[in-house]
Design a protein around this nucleic acid. Structure first.
Lengths: 130, 130
DNA sequence: CGCATATATTCGCATAACCGGTTGGACGAA
DNA sequence: TTCGTCCAACCGGTTATGCGAATATATGCG
């Protein structure tokens, strides 16, 4: 039964829930889409996506330097049922709705060919501002 | 969405899952039934039951010195659906089946009027054995 | 009252989880 | 090849969680 506890542990984090919710509603997203939409650091985004990947809930497809993440069909019946219940419940959750709005806004304003939000030069520029 | 993460956190522990499973299959159990069946310390049993109680998943009914725990109807639709999926999945889980066997065995051999497994004198007797 | 039992709670510690900042590898454009 | 961007992984530090032992509280019996 340890495996089941482990599964719930993966879901027991707000950042990961929000990522799953984004992927419930979009075929594919790259890491920078997720970090921009959720307003989290690149480190945090990558870390939690790795957790979801190790748990078998998402897959990534690499295209050049980008990683596009997407949902992965559940392997166990438990996972399938839990995720379905989660999705249904999030659909009526006010916070979840807001996140989808943020995603749409970001995708609309996203510069074609790279967002550069987490680049070295951008970070250095931010440091200069002080 | 923090509330949902919090809910999953409660389920993300093997001891708590096993307790829930026992209560799925029995109207009421007292703390010593649970600690004997799951072979855990009294402290651990009480602590995790308190967590489940605070999360609103179980209630306790006091009769004298005993506390009888039982399931409590889920308050949110999320909780209801998740717990139902969990129950269904545990029903086919080999480990879960074994635990139910342990419970039956314990209840059959349980001394009428108290189990005295965690009493002061019993603990002291165990210390003498060394 | 004095003592045994059932349960809850506190305490100190170990470990797990999470975090931001940073580093390093991969890749593509110049 | 050098530079800039995307991403994963590492580093140290902080917080959260879980544990057993010990203690506290409540009940009831004689």
């Amino acid at each position: 039964m340890k495996d089941i506890a482990q599964f719930f542990k993966v879901l027991a984090d707000e950042a990961r829930l929000r990522m799953l919710w984004l992927l419930f509603n979009n075929q594919e997203l790259c890491v920078c889409d997720i970090m921009e939409t959720l307003d989290i650091t690149q480190s945090k985004a990558s870390r939690h996506l790795a957790t979801l990947r190790h748990a078998g809930l998402v897959t990534d497809r690499k295209v050049g330097a980008w990683s596009y993440y997407s949902l992965r069909p559940a392997e166990s019946e438990l996972a399938r049922a839990q995720l379905e219940a989660l999705r249904a419940s999030l659909a009526t959750h006010p916070g979840a709705r807001a996140v989808l709005g943020d995603l749409k806004t970001w995708l609309r304003s996203k510069p074609r060919g790279g967002c550069a939000a987490n680049s070295r030069t951008t970070r250095e520029a931010l440091v200069q501002e002080r």
